[in-house]
Design a protein around this nucleic acid. Structure first.
Lengths: 245, 245
DNA sequence: CAAAGTTGTGTAATTTTTACACAAAAAAGA
DNA sequence: TCTTTTTTGTGTAAAAATTACACAACTTTG
């Protein structure tokens, strides 16, 4: 009944010209910023560049760019990544938007932060720019804009994500030893883990493939090398149901 | 050494005028959209409104608005919430940005999705607009724009979050029975849970306060009422370390 | 006052997590 | 080539968490 009445009501105030509507919207400059993590010498690193703003002279900044007309945010982030590192097919995920009106000294700019993980020693990785460098995350400070806040947020995001998803492998070479894997977890989570339990855990997941190779050129007894079986993981991804807080 | 050289290098190409730089940036219209969840008759609901675009005549749309000049995204989302529901102090969290170039028929509009949880029966809740209504999440379809995709994403987000954080309580009255709490979890997660184990779990958390009241006006034996102890939760929030994927 | 429906509770079995130590392998250096 | 150093690789027992499962007491309804 009620439905009928509302259906019969003439559609007053319906907007016919969507284009005109959108043209009247206020517009803001929009950028993406990439927090590109790497892992080297048992430390989590992030790729930064010297700010090109005089205002932030000497401070580091994240790699970012404006979002182009008709460009998706993900696309823009991939573009930044490709332009700056030469890398394709890198893990990348949106974290969140940062919108403080005064976050940019040049006026309002909203940015969407992306988190990316790559292997610092990947042969295709090309860091062209001299001012680009891998900075240890734990010693970062005085960044340009709100970039420190963005890094902090992405770092927290990463800490949570590597416990729930096999992201960490993106930071390692394709072949890695269990020790390297454990070092990665320990460095990122900032804890030390029991070696036997760590190995048992990964063994029970049955997602590491023993490739029958050993580490080379290590100054100690070499460990076995493994690959991560991404296909198997994708197939068996388990839906976790539980309540825990 | 290298450091010294690069320090001595004159700071060529430093941008002096940040304002001019930003003025040259392309700009895009930006909106927020709120996925406002409620819980009623053991079903998860979402607040929707008939689209005011002729293009989407008859389709439901989320509650959203443009982001104003110098307005933070969070602020804009709170404003939408306040204007549409009359509610303050409601749980609200950013989920992610949606940026498909063709997501709006009027041209490019990027939107940032927020997820909000409120008690449908809260006495301060005022749904002024006749076209506003609470729609069961599971039967939603044919929404305007990419709003169905946004709802789906927020629903997934909610399923994950209620397992890790005590968000669910925002959907219930201040005083609730364990049965109501369990119904909430079952409805949102789409599973059925063992009653004894569910109660044991919450009892072991020791975050529910027995307020020595009983349910009123229920057509069966009334259950005890509880409140959630948010203060205690905030104090004892545990940092979970574990690897599980 | 009987019937229907719901609350509230405990225990045993299973699974998962934690803590912990030693022998074998390889490299480095004498 | 032998000794030292460092790291790999492995199992078990205790503790904790999760799961499965049934019955009596209470309240409402008719």
């Amino acid at each position: 009944m009620t439905k009928k009445i509302s259906n019969e009501k003439p559609h007053e105030h319906l907007i016919k010209d969507a284009k005109k509507l959108v043209q009247a919207y206020p517009k803001v400059p929009l950028t993406v910023d990439c927090v590109i993590f790497g892992f080297e010498e048992n430390k989590l690193k992030v790729l930064v560049i010297k700010s090109d703003l005089e205002y932030y002279q000497g401070h580091y900044s994240l790699l970012g760019d404006i979002v182009k007309d008709n460009e998706e945010l993900d696309q823009a982030a991939y573009r930044v990544l490709k332009e700056r590192t030469g890398m394709n097919d890198v893990f990348l995920d949106q974290v969140r938007a940062f919108s403080h009106p005064a976050r940019h000294p040049g006026g309002r700019v909203i940015t969407v932060a992306y988190c990316s993980l790559l292997n610092i020693n990947h042969h295709e990785l090309k860091i062209h720019d001299n001012d680009l460098n891998w900075h240890t995350v734990s010693t970062l400070k005085d960044m340009a804009f709100d970039h420190k806040e963005i890094v902090d947020e992405c770092y927290s995001w990463l800490q949570k994500m590597i416990q729930e998803h096999p992201l960490g492998f993106n930071l390692l070479p394709e072949k890695f030893s269990l020790r390297e894997l454990q070092n990665l977890y320990e460095a990122i989570l900032g804890v030390s883990l029991d070696r036997r339990n760590f190995r048992k855990k990964f063994a029970s997941m049955d997602l590491l493939v023993d490739i029958n190779e050993m580490e080379q050129d290590v100054p100690h007894r070499p460990g076995k090398l493994y690959k991560f079986n991404f296909e198997k993981y994708e197939k068996n991804k388990r839906k976790w149901i539980g309540i825990d807080f």
